[in-house]
Design a protein around this nucleic acid. Structure first.
Lengths: 215, 215
DNA sequence: CCTATAGTTCACCAGATGGTTAATTAATTA
DNA sequence: TAATTAATTAACCATCTGGTGAACTATAGG
């Protein structure tokens, strides 16, 4: 029977740890340079592990990217699951979803750039990932229920499509953050300072709630 | 004195034509593979011109990308200029802006991917382009005037920031189209068929007008 | 303690890649 | 028409890149 080592005893070899370290380094590299601009040698350096290990665990660059993408999806889906919107009143739930989306993107900028790369490649990495494809956002059903509850109570207007609304909520944050560099330059002002960020969040809440609420 | 040739007389050599052909080929290539994934040799093939010419006219890959970006901005700004929103009533003007944005992105998918690449590189190509930086959207001032007109007439709510609204209008279309591949897969339905597209446009108009209109 | 194997390292490679040198030819000007 | 200049081409190159073969070693199980 295998003896459980004390958690602090650091092994010199550990497959899971190496996989995770590579995945993290790859995520940074892909996020920084895109799929085409990312360099395997740099991922190796970044991780402090031998390049050969990357191929040992992930076969090739595309499958490595796919693994990074899967991990990114898994992570956001987990965060979404912890949201507990069902406990809130409809309007509060929608507001919380807007805030969550904004904060998640803000705290995980890599997610945005990696998703951009995935889309540049026509989503073929998700398409080929049985795992990621199954990671259909459970939020959509929940959002549908929230919209229905709000409609019945008379707070919300009727006929709102959950997918459309979800995409709109995501899009309002996504575009602002993903295109922040060019927008800041074109508009000649820093869109990432604290004041600008808080104004953006207020604005988005007003837009989404202004739309959803019957009044 | 130089004699003006008849326009139909195709010269074997023509600097401006070559520049334009290269720019177009480069735009396609960058749009398809991103800055890092784009290949100079492929741009040469695509254009049917010798690779050396690319360096002759554009010095290096980054400056070529910069030129592509400048051209893309110039083009959308020209289209915006032709919009003539000032002639319309406030609500109609806002709706037209939403529709224009949607249609422009739809008809110029390269614009989205090139802008994504520009942002991946922290906007340094725009930053370094005196030309593109000066291409500040004239739409912002106009949008501000429209909002003010609507507020005075009582149609619109007050306190709407033109930049925020512009970013929101752009974001709603941009995210849907730029991330269309992954969204279509995740939601398990074609987001680009005619019905889906028309539903998206309706939804966006409802969101924006629902927010802007006092009611 | 020995053995099998999973994990790791090192040295290497063929082809691709951005970029250049220098010659060549079409168009323009005098 | 000759000379000058601008546009174009072909061949080339150093370096980089994704990927691999094979040797080596820490660890777990017997």
């Amino acid at each position: 029977m295998s003896v459980q080592k004390s958690p602090s005893a650091t092994k010199t070899r550990d497959a899971e740890r190496s996989r995770a370290v590579i995945l993290k380094a790859a995520s940074e590299e892909f996020s920084l340079f895109g799929l085409g601009g990312a360099r395997i040698d740099r991922i190796a350096e970044r991780s402090g592990l031998n390049k050969r290990l990357i191929y040992y665990y992930f076969s090739d660059k595309d499958q490595l990217f796919q693994a990074v993408l899967e991990a990114a999806y898994r992570k956001i889906r987990e965060s979404e699951r912890d949201l507990n919107l069902e406990a809130l009143k409809p309007a509060a739930a929608i507001r919380k979803l807007v805030e969550f989306t904004w904060n998640y993107y803000l705290e995980n900028p890599d997610f945005l750039t990696i998703l951009n790369s995935a889309n540049l490649h026509k989503g073929r990495h998700i398409q080929e990932s049985n795992h990621a494809r199954a990671l259909n956002s459970p939020l959509i059903e929940l959002l549908g229920e929230i919209l229905e509850k709000g409609r019945i109570s008379g707070e919300f207007r009727g006929g709102i499509d959950a997918v459309q609304l979800y995409i709109s909520i995501a899009g309002l944050s996504y575009f602002y953050l993903s295109n922040n560099s060019t927008l800041s330059i074109i508009f000649g002002k820093g869109l990432m300072n604290p004041k600008a960020k808080s104004e953006r969040l207020s604005h988005m809440c007003e837009v989404i709630l202004g739309y959803v609420l019957r009044n």
